[in-house]
Design a protein around this nucleic acid. Structure first.
Lengths: 334, 334
DNA sequence: GTGAAAGCGCTAACAA
DNA sequence: TTGTTAGCGCTTTCAC
C-alpha cells in the first residue's frame, strides 16, 4: 500500500524519451550511454523522485539482496547491542543492510526467524544460537546459505563459528580467587541451558577441582535469570552459617544481583563478573571483569560471512577469542 | 549467488503433479484446494526444501514487503538498544522484519540510509533523526511512505512524532536542586547539535532563570562527547575557586564522566542524570535519574506506524511522554 | 549508442 | 476444484 504510486523505470524512460534499457544503463552508470542521454535520464529520475526497486532488481538480476540477517538472543541487552555494533561496522563499507531479530533463547522462535529471513533471501545469516538442535539449517546451507555462528556454537550443523574462551577465562579468574586463599567461592549463572553458562561453570569447577576443593551445591546458583529469585538466593548464601568468601558471576545481570545482595547484607566480597558491560569502574563494588569483547565478536563473524560471500570455500572455521581481564578495583586504585 | 539453486514454486508444482497456481494456493493455505491435493503439494515442498521467495511475492502481489526500517543514532548505545527492543516487541505480533541502521548523528549518512531503505521498499521508516534538515523525505512521504520520528523531531517534514518532555523534566530536576539550596549548578551535555541536549539545557536555564540565578558559562559544558575532554573540564570546575555544589548531566555518558571526575577529586556532589540506563542504583554516586523510557518510545512509535499502515489518515500526530524520575539515592537508602 | 523481447519467482484475474 | 494467461519492476540477452 505505502509504496504503490511510485514512479517506475518505465516512467523515467518515457519522460526522458529513451527506452527502458537506456534508462536502466544510465541510472546504473553503465558504459555505452551518451553523456547527454545519461543527463536527460538522471534529470527525469530526479524530477519524478524515482527510487529503484531493489527487490525487483534482485529478482531480475539474480544478484543477492544485499541484506544480512542477524539473529540474537535479545537486541535490548547491552552485550548484544555491542555485538550488533561490531557487525554493523564490518558491513558498513559494503552497503549491506542489516535485518535483526531476537529469539529470547527460545529455540522455536529461532527456527521461525531463520525461516523468515531465508524467505527474505538474506545473503547470509549470523546467529547467536538459542539452546537446542538447529539441524533444520542444513537444508538451507546445502542450498548455498552462508551461516556464521557467534558467541555460541550452533548444534547440528557445521558452520563458521566465533566464540570466546569461556571456560579458560573463568577457570583463570577462579584460580586467582583460590590463590588469594578463598576456598568457599559462590558461582552464579542465569540460565543453565546456555552454552556460555555451561562453559563458564565448567571453568569454575575445573579450578576448584585442581585445588582439591569440593563443590558445595549451596554455593551454586545456575538459574538466576529472575532477579528477585537470584537476590534472595545470594542473600541466603551470605546469611548461612558457612558463607562464601568470594563470588564468581558467570553472567553480568547475576553479578549485579550479587552486588545488591552484598549491599543489603552490608558485606563486600571479592567479585568476579563475566561480561560486565556497563562501566564496571563506577559500580559500588568494582569487580574483576572477564570480557568477551562483543564488538569484536560481531565484527569477526561478519567478516567471516563476507569472505564466504566472496567465494571462499572449504571446511567450517572455528575462531576462539581470548577473553579480556580487567581488575577494576586495582585499576581505579581501590 | 548464495541462494541460486533453490527450488522454485514451479519445481514444487511439477513434483506434486499440479499446476503452478494450485501449488501456490496450497502453500498459502487458500481456500479451494482439495485436502488430498494440498497434502501432496506440502509434501513436495517439504521434500524439496522449498522456501518461498518473499521478494518475488511482494513484487507480484503488490503487497508490502513486511519490513520496517529503523534508523537510529547508534545501535550499540544502551539507550537505543532498549528503544529497538520496544520497536521489536510492537512489531513481533505482525511478523514484520526489522531493518536497522545507525547514522551516528551524521546527517549525510542518515540521508543515505533513508535512500537505501526506501529502495528496499520498507513499509515504514522509524527515525531518530540526526541533526539537520530532512526535507528530502517529503518526496517519499508524498509517495506514501509512512515515517515516524522518535526521541527527536524530524526537521523539514511533518510526520507522527514521539518525544519526551526533555525541557520540563530537566527544569523540574534542576528546580529540586535549587530548592535544596544549590545556586551553583554545573550543566553537562555531550553534543550541542542534538535537539534533546538543547531542550534539556533549555530546561536547566529555565529553572535558573526562575530562581534569578545568573548562568555561569564556566559551569556549562555542552560538548562533552569526548570522555577525556569532559572529565578534564569537570575536574577544572571542581578545582576552581568557585566550584559547583551540584551537577546536572543532560546525557548519561557525561554523567558518568562526572562521577569519575568527582571520585578523582574526592568530592561527591548531588548529581542529576538524564537517561542513565545501566542500573543507576549500583553506581558509586547514586544519582537522581530522569528517564525517557526508550522501550516505550520505541513501542509507541512502532504502534503509530502500524496504525498508518492500517490506513489511518489525518494530520501528523505528536505524542509527548512524561519523563520518569527516580531518586536513586533515596530509593536505596543513602 | 540504443532498443525489443524474454524472463526472474511469484500472484491475480479469469477461465474451464 | 483446478489451470491459463498476464504482469509486478527490473535486468538481461541479442539485435539494430
Amino acid at each position: 500500500m505505502s509504496q504503490r504510486s511510485r514512479p517506475k523505470l518505465a516512467d523515467v524512460a518515457e519522460r526522458a524519451g529513451v527506452s527502458l534499457k537506456t534508462a536502466s544503463r544510465a541510472l546504473n552508470g553503465e558504459y555505452g550511454v551518451a553523456p547527454a542521454t545519461a543527463e536527460k535520464v538522471l534529470a527525469a529520475a530526479r524530477e519524478l523522485g524515482f527510487r529503484p526497486n531493489l527487490l525487483a532488481r534482485s529478482l531480475a538480476s539474480g544478484r543477492p539482496s544485499a541484506a544480512i540477517g542477524l539473529i540474537i538472543a535479545n537486541v535490548a541487552d547491552p552485550f548484544f547491542a555491542e555485538l550488533i555494533g561490531g557487525v554493523e561496522r564490518a558491513l558498513g563499507a559494503r552497503d549491506l543492510q542489516l535485518v535483526i531479530a531476537s529469539h529470547h533463547d527460545d529455540p522455536e522462535r529461532q527456527q521461525k526467524l531463520v525461516r523468515a529471513l531465508v524467505e527474505r533471501r538474506v545473503d547470509a545469516l549470523l546467529v547467536t544460537p538459542a539452546p537446542g538442535d538447529a539441524s533444520y539449517l542444513r537444508d538451507d546451507i546445502d542450498h548455498g546459505l552462508v551461516v556464521v555462528s557467534l558467541d555460541r556454537p550452533l548444534v547440528g550443523v557445521e558452520v563458521d563459528t566465533v566464540i570466546v574462551e569461556n571456560r579458560t577465562g573463568s577457570a583463570n579468574a577462579v584460580r586467582e580467587l583460590i590463590a588469594s586463599g578463598h576456598r568457599r567461592i559462590a558461582a552464579l549463572a542465569n540460565d543453565p541451558r546456555l552454552w556460555t553458562m555451561q562453559e563458564r561453570i565448567a571453568g569454575y569447577r575445573l579450578a576448584l577441582g585442581e585445588a582439591g576443593i569440593a563443590e558445595d551445591p549451596a554455593l551454586v546458583l545456575l538459574d538466576g535469570a529472575d532477579s528477585q529469585v537470584s537476590r534472595r538466593r545470594i542473600a541466603e548464601m551470605l546469611a548461612s552459617s558457612d558463607p562464601p568468601t568470594a563470588i564468581f558471576a558467570a553472567h553480568n545481570a547475576t553479578g549485579r544481583d550479587a552486588i545488591r545482595a552484598m549491599r543489603a547484607a552490608a558485606r563486600e566480597l571479592p567479585l568476579v563478573v563475566f561480561d560486565e558491560e556497563s562501566d564496571p569502574d563506577l559500580l559500588v563494588t568494582p569487580p574483576l571483569v572477564i570480557q568477551s569483547d562483543p564488538t569484536r565478536l560481531g565484527r569477526v563473524a561478519a567478516e567471516m560471512a563476507l569472505e564466504r560471500l566472496d567465494g571462499l570455500s572449504g571446511p567450517a572455521r572455528l575462531v576462539v577469542h581470548q577473553v579480556g581481564r580487567h581488575d577494576v578495583a586495582r585499576e581505579i586504585g581501590r
